[in-house]
Nucleic acid binder design. Structure first.
Lengths: 206, 206
DNA sequence: TTTTTATTCAACAAAATTGTTTAATAAAAA
DNA sequence: TTTTTATTAAACAATTTTGTTGAATAAAAA
């Protein structure tokens, strides 16, 4: 524990996040992290003692932050379409900034066996699922298990960004062209989500 | 190079695949792989000399195989809905068997900087994109950039499987319940893909 | 200025991982 | 059975990574 937070502690954690979440360097060593933070490797150990503790903190912090952001969006009192719009924007911004955050989480769970149960609140998700169910009753969106609705939403937003290096090759697109595709998805996903079987799509256009 | 393929060579590669793609142990050491294959670590080196060569072969082989399977599905001469059905089944089976294959590919690209350009054939993808475009003209599916259509398809299928450990927690579901959700997606994704804005969904039901 | 706190430096020990080698043994083929 | 081939065992060197320590500086606070 440092006696005072002079910012270096954060610097280290942010550098780790950048390497892991933004650059996808999931094996980053303490040296890598120190370099990325522009500090001495000793400092990493000084502040976090072990690599494991640093990684764990990054893991927990991100999990909590992500959870919180989503909860916030899900609990806002805006009308449903607006709320979805917010959810999309929040999620998209996060994924573009940190495409490998979720990948990291999953691999950490698979490798280190982190527990994250405690970090997830019951409330927001289940109450949002109920709201989704009500919207389905109202006919705004197609009827299905609300869990599928949310999975669809996140899938359509996250996956292409995570797999960008793969699909860029797959579709033989230049980096810029692929980025343009990603940008287009904000509206496209919104449309898809609100496209009902009976053709009513008369909602607030984004 | 072994003088003869007695099966051990494959055994090693398969064990590596299992660890990397099925269990998500993306950092598996030569020892881990040897253990998983039930053989001596020396054998790993005997057959592949270095870890890197083994990993590279696994990478290339999977890339080629995946590419081939998809090409095959995309080039079949079945009618479009049937073709999509095949594509879904192929993709879903692959993802369920090897949820982390794509994750591995991407992290390898980000870390080792593998080139895979040469592995992807021009033909099948672009001709399939054209077919998708024709179907859009015909009104079977919604009009959009065909690239988006394919990205949507793969996103909806892959992402929930890749992120299962995360979303299982997120939705507070038991493993079995979540698996049931995944199974439901085969039909659900099919429906979504063929759900047009004007409400015509009168295709072959799966 | 003195004292405390933050950071670096250098050196090192301990582990873990990789890769090589040589001999031993087991299995298969001739 | 002899010979080749496949596999293991054991020991080792090289490398990388981790983690510790204590002294040296630098910066900030008192």
């Amino acid at each position: 524990m440092p006696l005072k937070d002079t910012g270096t502690e954060r610097l280290i954690k942010d550098a780790a996040k950048r390497l892991l979440f933004a650059e996808g360097k999931l094996y980053a060593t303490t040296q890598d992290i120190a370099d990325a933070a522009g500090i001495n490797r000793s400092a990493v150990h000084y502040y976090y003692r072990t690599r494991n503790q640093l990684i764990s903190q990054v893991f927990e912090e991100s999990m909590t932050a992500l959870s919180l952001r989503l909860d916030q969006a899900m609990l806002s009192d805006h009308p449903f379409p607006k709320k979805i719009e917010e959810l999309i924007d929040i999620y998209l911004a996060e994924m573009i900034a940190y495409p490998y955050e979720e990948t990291f989480m999953v691999t950490e769970i698979n490798n280190a066996g982190h527990k994250l149960v405690t970090k997830i609140k019951e409330g927001p998700v289940s109450s949002f699922l109920e709201e989704v169910a009500r919207e389905m009753e109202a006919g705004t969106i197609d009827k299905m298990n609300p869990v599928h609705f949310l999975i669809n939403l996140f899938s359509l937003l996250s996956y292409p960004i995570i797999m960008a290096p793969l699909y860029q090759q797959f579709f033989q697109l230049a980096k810029d062209d692929f980025n343009k595709i990603i940008q287009e998805r904000r509206d496209l996903v919104y449309q898809m989500i609100f496209k009902t079987k009976d053709g009513k799509t008369d909602h607030v256009k984004m």
